[in-house]
Design a protein around this nucleic acid. Structure first.
Length: 575
RNA sequence: GCGGUUGUAGUCUAGUCUGGUUAGGACUUGGGCCUUCCAAGCCUACGACCCGGGUUCAAAUCCCGGCAGCCGCACCA
């Protein structure tokens, strides 16, 4: 299996190690070894080029420990849980709501634990396995809890997603972006989930890295200004409808997907396209990618539309590596409520709206003598009432009663005048909607390794994209002779001074060195041989086809640089 | 979290049933020899009984507990 081969290389050559090994390890935690750490940074930096540089979203960094209130507002304290029950006899543990649903065919999602416990005991629901008694229902919260401060009075949690760290300083962000939608902010960092039983290597971690963008948009305008740039891009979609009908995926052009209403908005579709380009630059082939729409039942209740980018793996099947959701205004609204801060945005109309309306104008010269000290109150009360109602009452009854603090005052037409007024409304305050692409970096790194792996029987190697490979250049002396070794060392040191990560290797035969170098995906190898001594040329070898070209020593850096930036391809070099 | 199963160098493995030499081999890795382009050969070195208790004169081996991996179930807002 590819997974086995890749994980072997990852472990052996320093990409991924399970953590705390000398203490026999803890499930759900992984170390990035020397090469893994570089690869991860390469992926993240490419992500930044996509989202921060090209999209113009800015990156922020917020704490990984969050106070309870913030996660109460986001819903994680109450809802990021599973209701659990345990059989008192055989100790088997179950999801309480699933037990009930299976036993009495009733959907009890969202009920409190006490209610669930009651339902179980009232209906005498037994353990499905041994028939024993089930315990009371408790909530298993997937967040790691901790205490903040010396006295530990304040409950804190390790953040379960980086997104909340962007919603919370929304007012500051809005000010930074000078009050105008749309804008986006991103965060790259660790998030934590205390999974019940993580057993899928780097696929389900208890501590993992997310790269998330939160894009704030006007709910009434989910178009995208650069949509035309992606409209012709073909996406492999797996819409909810097809999943239900057990039909397959469909290939659709982005523009058509919006037109046909398969994807709910331009801006969401644009994000799908962006994700696809990103992954394909990481070397993940199109046929191993699909966009799966969430079924209405699995979608969080606040989302309108949500698409997972899934990648095909030999061991785990299709796994989610990116989630792209329209989260609507749920988060901002909720934080607004809990914090009493106005997290709305003022949207100015294209044209101010003018409203013509009739207002009642009390004649204060007459009000004063008549109502004495109460006249201001009567005036305010009158202004509260719709002027039309007053007018109508005058016509029908000849008077109008206003009630102020329990007392009724009779107004007659001679006390009140009417005036037509035009009011200008320049805009309104709204909660923006949030479009959220959320990348699981660890899973992406795994996918990159998985799909870079090649084994043609002769050799096993990682065909990593040139800008992803942790080590860019290997430098070898053809044979282990002092004169050759010296030049090879110089070349390596010179490349390092110019920011190209390179390694020297003189151990074993030349073939073994190439093999070692290929195994970790080094795209190019420079070999110093006897000819170098005569005419100051070296060979550059291409990892993917084993071909070599001879180039002048003085040009080595420039050539490698242009190969590594993608300016030139190896095939275009003069042989 | 439950049940089954497995833990010997970086990797694969012998030894465990039936307790008893210095825990053996292969590959890998480091050093050297040889070598004019793709894991060759020779010499040499480093490197292991998952952890903790117990039984015993003696434990890699038997017993108990823990941890981890794998498989199945469950779980994955």
């Amino acid at each position: 299996m590819t997974d086995t081969d890749v994980m072997n290389i990852a472990k052996k050559r320093g990409f991924l190690w399970s953590s705390f090994e000398i203490y026999s390890g803890v499930a759900g935690f992984f170390d990035y070894g020397p090469l893994g750490a570089i690869l991860k940074n390469n992926i993240i930096n490419k992500w930044r080029r996509y989202y921060v540089v090209r999209e113009g979203f800015y990156e922020i960094e917020s704490p990984t420990i969050m106070p309870g209130e913030a996660l109460k507002a986001s819903g994680h304290v109450d809802h990021f849980t599973d209701p659990m029950t345990e059989c008192k006899d055989c100790m088997e543990v179950y999801r309480a709501d699933h037990i009930i649903r299976d036993a009495i065919d009733k959907d009890v999602e969202g009920l409190e634990n006490q209610k669930l416990t009651e339902i179980i005991s009232k209906n005498k629901i037994p353990c499905p396995k041994c028939g024993g008694h089930l315990s009371h229902v408790w909530s298993y919260n997937l967040m790691f809890q901790t205490l903040i401060g010396a006295k530990g009075k304040k409950t804190g949690y390790m953040r379960p997603e980086t997104a909340q760290g962007i919603f919370i300083p929304f007012k500051r962000l809005l000010r930074f972006f000078r009050g105008k939608l749309p804008f986006g902010a991103v965060q790259v960092g660790k998030a934590y989930r205390n999974e019940i039983s993580p057993r899928q290597g780097v696929i389900r971690l208890r501590e993992f890295t997310q790269a998330e963008a939160e894009i704030f948009v006007n709910p009434s305008n989910k178009k995208h200004s650069r949509f035309s740039a992606v409209a012709d891009q073909t996406l492999t979609l797996f819409p909810a409808e097809n999943q239900v009908k057990e039909a397959g995926t469909v290939k659709v052009k982005a523009g058509d997907a919006v037109q046909n209403g398969i994807i709910s908005s331009e801006i969401l579709t644009y994000q799908l396209c962006l994700a696809e380009r990103f992954l394909s630059e990481l070397g993940i082939p199109d046929e191993a990618l699909r966009f799966r729409q969430h079924l209405p039942t699995e979608m969080a209740h606040y989302a309108i539309d949500c698409w997972d980018v899934e990648v095909k793996t030999d061991r785990f099947g299709w796994i989610e590596i990116i989630g792209i959701a329209d989260r609507t205004d749920f988060d901002l609204k909720s934080h607004s409520q809990y914090s009493n801060e106005d997290l709305r945005v003022f949207i100015e109309y294209d044209e101010p709206k003018t409203l013509k309306k009739v207002v009642a104008k009390p004649d204060m010269k007459k009000f004063g003598p008549m109502f004495k000290g109460n006249s201001p109150k009567v005036k305010y009360a009158l202004e509260e009432v719709d002027a039309g109602t007053v007018q109508k009452s005058f016509e029908d009854e000849g008077f109008f009663d206003v009630e102020v603090e329990g007392e009724v005052y009779k107004l007659t037409p001679d006390l009140v005048g009417f005036e037509e007024k035009t009011e200008t409304i320049r805009g309104e305050k709204i909660f923006p909607h949030v479009i959220e692409p959320s990348y699981g970096i660890d899973r992406i790194l795994y996918s990159v390794l998985l799909h870079a792996f090649r084994n043609d029987g002769e050799r096993a190697y990682l065909k990593l994209p040139v800008d992803m490979a942790p080590v860019s250049v290997s430098v070898f002396p053809l044979v282990n002779k002092e004169e050759l070794a010296e030049i090879a060392h110089e070349i390596r040191d010179n490349l390092r001074l110019k920011d190209i990560i390179s390694e020297y290797d003189a151990s074993g035969t030349i073939g073994r060195r190439y093999a070692r170098s290929d195994e970790i995906g080094v795209p190019f190898a420079v070999t110093v041989d006897h000819e170098t001594l005569e005419d100051k040329t070296v060979t550059i070898r291409n990892r993917d086809d084993l071909k070599q070209v001879r180039v002048p020593l003085k040009d080595v850096y420039n050539i490698l640089r242009s190969l590594l930036t993608g300016e030139k391809r190896f095939e275009d070099l003069d042989a």
